Amino acid sequence: MKKKILVVDDEQTTCVLLENFLSPEYEVVTKTSGIEALLWLNNNLPDLIISDIQMAKMNGYEFLKEVRLSGFTKHTPIIMLSGNKESKERIKCYQLGAQDYLTKPFNPEELKEVTKKNLFPIHYASNW
């Protein structure tokens, strides 16, 4: 059974790109807003969440806070995506509970490795 990844980004092109890149190995569900994603999370539990930060209605920080406050998803690994390369934004994501942070445009190979690291941390480490 494939691991399930929730992708949250208000840019449809990013959702399609991530879905096309990750779907050969994982089940990928895309949502175009944090609000839509939270509603989906009420009845579903992904193995990993990948979320943009700059989104309308609910930004990635707000979404991340809500996910961490939920009993069901508070331990779900989260990778944040942003076009901002400033370290203070990255630090804020870590302080709010994100496991990783990638800047856009991201390297697909780096995304693949960060995804594996978060979904299979013990197996990934054993390959070192």
Score class of each variant (00 low, 15 high):
M1I: 08
M1T: 12
K3G: 04
D9K: 01
D10C: 06
D10G: 05
T14M: 11
T14E: 01
V16H: 08
L18S: 04
L18I: 12
E19L: 00
F21I: 06
L22I: 07
S23R: 11
S23G: 03
P24S: 06
Y26K: 05
T30I: 11
T32H: 12
S33D: 05
I35L: 12
L39Q: 15
W40E: 08
N44E: 13
L45Y: 06
P46V: 10
L48F: 05
I49Y: 02
I49L: 09
I50W: 01
I53S: 00
Q54A: 13
M55K: 02
M55S: 05
A56N: 14
K57V: 14
G60W: 01
E62V: 11
E62T: 15
E62Q: 15
K65A: 10
V67Q: 01
R68A: 04
L69E: 11
L69D: 10
S70W: 06
G71V: 07
F72P: 02
T76A: 07
P77H: 05
M80A: 11
L81P: 00
L81E: 00
S82Y: 06
G83L: 03
K85R: 13
S87H: 11
K88F: 14
K88V: 13
E89D: 14
R90D: 01
I91W: 05
K92I: 09
C93T: 15
C93A: 15
C93V: 11
L96W: 12
G97R: 12
G97C: 13
G97Q: 12
A98C: 12
A98P: 02
L102M: 15
P105T: 09
F106S: 04
P108L: 08
E110F: 02
L111Q: 05
K116Y: 05
K117M: 11
N118D: 07
P121E: 08
P121F: 05
H123Y: 06
Y124C: 06
Y124H: 14
A125V: 10
